[in-house]
Design a protein around this nucleic acid. Structure first.
Lengths: 204, 204
DNA sequence: CCGAAGTTTCAAGAATTTCTGAAAACAATA
DNA sequence: TATTGTTTTCAGAAATTCTTGAAACTTCGG
């Protein structure tokens, strides 16, 4: 590996973290390299800089494409594929969250939806199903919110994030406004906290 | 494995998903079982129900304790350790997010903070560092927001989530209010979108 | 202090994932 | 269609992670 020290430490870190992020070392390092690179790189550039085998790099790039995390582009007069990451970090975050949701949450939501249709055959199954329904409703609430937020323009999103703790004050303000006769929107079973959940948080 | 079908399919699913969630099959299945169980279980109960070796269960439980995802308790007159998951799903979500942040984000934030102190030695390093600063500021903004939200009472949190898309309207309302002379709070370098990021989101 | 009941550690084998080099497939050009 | 440069596939080697049974360790009541 032949990289400026600053770049190298970042690349190595991403390699290490890869396993925690659900990608492997190679993929993590390739991504880090592309992220920092001022111009697009082709597979052979990556082989040179990281010292992985050509095929390993090829598979890694394919995986990154599967995640929509890299952009494929061409340079006029050059037949090779060049890759880069979007300049806009917000775009990267949006993609990342979307893809993780797809892989880590959606399958579980489907499973829960299906399982909740089965008729329970015992008290134990009835309890299990109640628990699953709670989980389903919670996840549905979270993903519904996520989808709404994903639609916001970046500027609004930044505004929302910058608001931080002060969001509480805004919610209180809204409370007061909504004491007028209520029109309520999308909320479903998840409208209130789950039945047997005490509103106080308990310490672990 | 000797479980009611409904429970079994849930347990198997969690086992499968385990690898995507950064835990392994054993740990995923143990957690699923505890999550659905009406009463606390001891290690031997788990061995019976899932058919893993005793030591494997022991390691799995230890890992779950490391994640703060299970609660250890005792039954009077019984020396064995019994385990359960919190009844309050919101508590579970809070713990889960907290622990993932600790493992998946905090180390990177530290690395970035340190790396940003190094003096760049070339144009390439200067560019890399600018990119890292962007990333650092973005993550700092997100985690700052997260910390604020984590402090909200569950009731407020549900309210915020239920708000969903209508948050936009609230933000606009706030805009109008804030046209009055401004008092601004915590926001730092991340106050505006990153320098060279166009506010329009580009499609991948 | 002893023995019983329980938990954890450890080394080795099993299973899975990652990585490689060689060969096959592909695509553009002449 | 043949040539050339490039990407992808694939089978096995290497590395890592998971799982187990046995032994070591802890804790508690007598």
């Amino acid at each position: 590996m032949n990289l400026p020290p600053l770049v190298q430490s970042f690349v190595l870190h991403f390699g290490e973290m890869g396993s925690r992020w659900g990608i492997n070392r190679t993929v993590g390092q390739i991504y880090a390299l592309l992220f920092l690179s001022p111009e697009p790189l082709c597979a052979d550039d990556i082989v040179d800089k990281l010292g992985f085998s050509r095929s390993n790099v090829s598979i890694g790039l394919k995986e990154l494409q599967g995640w929509n995390l890299v952009r494929l582009q061409h340079i006029p007069g050059d037949r090779r594929d060049y890759f880069s990451t979007p300049d806009d970090l917000w775009q990267i975050v949006r993609t990342l969250v979307e893809e993780r949701k797809k892989r880590e949450i959606d399958p579980t939501l489907s499973m829960l939806r299906e399982t909740l249709l089965v008729e329970p055959g015992s008290a134990e199954e009835r309890h299990a199903q109640a628990r699953m329904r709670e989980l389903h409703d919670l996840i549905a609430l979270l993903t519904g919110w996520y989808e709404d937020v994903q639609k916001l323009e970046t500027e609004r999103l930044v505004q929302l994030l910058t608001l931080g703790a002060r969001v509480q004050r805004i919610l209180e303000m809204k409370d007061r406004l909504t004491l007028l006769p209520g029109r309520r929107g999308r909320a479903s079973a998840a409208d209130a906290p789950p039945k047997d959940a005490p509103p106080k948080a308990e310490e672990a």
